[in-house]
Design a protein around this nucleic acid. Structure first.
Lengths: 335, 335
DNA sequence: TTGTAAGCGTTATCAA
DNA sequence: TTGATAACGCTTACAA
């Protein structure tokens, strides 16, 4: 490995001067500078980032801890974080917590030990995710998808507004009995979405039938079961709001197997990206969270905080409704 | 931050002894040992991995460079790599090259500068991907999905065999004119698959009609166009082999818009995971590469090589055919 | 403008 | 069995 010392010898200067040239931390005589740069080029020298990290006590490495890398929404977030980080000269360590709070905790530890400069996280749980170790070490954390105490910031959509928007869309389409399948009751995002659904019904002067509001598991199996349960009701719903992309797969499967057609028999709005299936289901409406932008913004926010720590900043992004016919595209704030 | 020095003071020993206890690099008196461990616990000390990395010259960090993180196949690979690495105490830096050879090159540089212990990569190109810098630094590289010169190993499926298997499946189902839509001609994987298709036709004594073999772009748009082109032929194919998961979305869309039904009008086999859509298209057969296992195996192979570098090892995994009715599940080697 | 030297937090060598 | 001490490759006071 070629070190700074090698370069300094080749250029006939001290390694301090090489460092100054490379980091631009101080003025260097143009001629000397040129000699150093020539030597760098000639030897194909590249600074050792580990040594630099140790000395500077910062690593130019961000960590991204996601709940579920197989979910296309988080994949999009991931790309956003990565692109924004790269643009600012940061690398990204990806950690897939796999909806496992212990795995998440372990990752957060390692990330702290590796002296990551900052962390973007989609928390496994608003209550149980513990970023104490990071905060103690002064490593700032930005939360996405779900708020987090102690975070230096967050980037979220207004889940209530988004769900309300979706519900209104169904009402406007003539739906009379709208059901909502949401995630676990202890999941902040899931309950916010349910809340938005209820609020929209209230506003429209519609009754909220408890039979039609189902807490499920954010998985395909849950969507499948919940949908079957709803379709078995004597008084069937004529519209469904399904609050995540994994459950919608179960829903679609259930409807398909029962020969229920969208949108003729029931109208359906789903949540989150499902890029492949969406193309193939022209009648499925969806609330789309701007995953890429969320990730991008989160990384930018994080990097800003590294430069100048201030008070926590919470950014609310806009979800858009992609209506089944592909016409209406409304940001949630417009409602 | 609490350092080893703090622990050593608290335990009344030298930091060398603390290091010995923590790494188990030498015998330590049990009593001393206990005092050290107590101090570690009390102070909640955790070794600084950057300092350790600098001193030891190895980082316990692997890098994973993937071509396209939004492709579910690579997502699966990613999970496999991550789980296997974690199990062995390695962290994983994820780099999404986004099918961009320059981005890939840049990532490989940074990864080398960060002293990654090893790299798993799905190369953007068999010819142009340059791992010279890594090899020069002695950082071993394991390739997945596509072979790579100079790599310390590879984990691939036998793409020829897999495509041949798919083609035979279509023949067995009574297909008489089978078309193949494959990726770019300069893509090793794409041409291998086309090759397998042709071989199976030859073996069956069927003619290969050049009109029916289309090089496309591995993207949805390509699948869409190619399918339309095929369906516009005077002598239409009655079966389609589509060699990747993004193109199949285009194919399905094209068929859907033309009212062509699967499997009644054309039988279709696709390649690679498409988890969401598959559930919803019960008549779509597919060749499934074991993405998770490939990733897992690649990481294991890489970590082995770190311990004892030997000659390159090339592992061939088995692709399975998931037939449209969900019955037949045949490993490709059985053919 | 440049060089010397100390130090980031570990680990490895060498004595004791 | 343990402790000094010198690296690892870089940055940054402080001197010159």
């Amino acid at each position: 490995m070629v070190t700074m010392r090698d370069v300094s010898r080749a250029a006939g200067v001290s390694s301090a001067t090489v460092s100054r040239v490379l980091t631009g931390s101080a003025e260097v005589d143009p001629a000397t500078r040129q000699r150093v740069l020539d030597a760098v080029r000639q030897l194909d020298y590249r600074p050792n980032l580990v040594a630099r990290g140790l000395r500077r006590q910062v690593s130019q490495v961000l960590a991204l801890v996601v709940t579920d890398i197989e979910n296309p929404f988080y994949t999009a977030v991931c790309r956003g974080v990565e692109d924004a980080a790269r643009l600012k000269g940061y690398s990204v360590i990806l950690c897939n917590a796999d909806r496992d709070i212990d795995k998440e905790r372990e990752y957060l530890r390692v990330v702290a030990d590796q002296n990551a400069s900052g962390v973007v996280i989609s928390p496994a749980s608003a209550q149980n995710t513990d970023i104490g170790a990071l905060v103690a070490r002064g490593i700032p954390v930005v939360a996405v998808d779900m708020p987090l105490e102690q975070a230096a910031g967050s980037v979220l959509v207004d889940n209530r507004a988004a769900a309300a928007m979706a519900t209104r869309h169904l009402l406007a389409g003539g739906a009379r009995r709208i059901a909502c399948i949401t995630g676990p009751s202890d999941n902040a995002t899931a309950s916010d979405r349910l809340d938005g659904y209820m609020r929209a019904l209230h506003e429209a002067g519609r009754p909220v039938d408890p039979e039609l509001a189902i807490y499920s598991n954010y998985r395909e199996s849950g969507g499948y079961e919940a949908t079957n349960r709803l379709m078995d009701l004597a008084d069937r719903p004529d519209a469904l709001l399904v609050t995540n992309n994994r459950m919608i797969v179960g829903t679609l499967r259930a409807l398909q197997s029962r020969g229920v057609s969208i949108p003729d028999d029931v109208n359906v709005v789903s949540f989150d990206e499902l890029p492949w299936a969406l193309e193939l289901h022209p009648h499925l409406s969806m609330v789309r969270q701007p995953g890429y932008l969320i990730g991008q913004k989160a990384a930018e926010l994080l990097i800003e905080r590294l430069a100048s720590p201030t008070t926590p900043q919470h950014i609310v992004m806009e979800a858009e409704l992609i209506a089944k016919d592909g016409r209406a595209r409304t940001p949630s704030s417009a409602i």
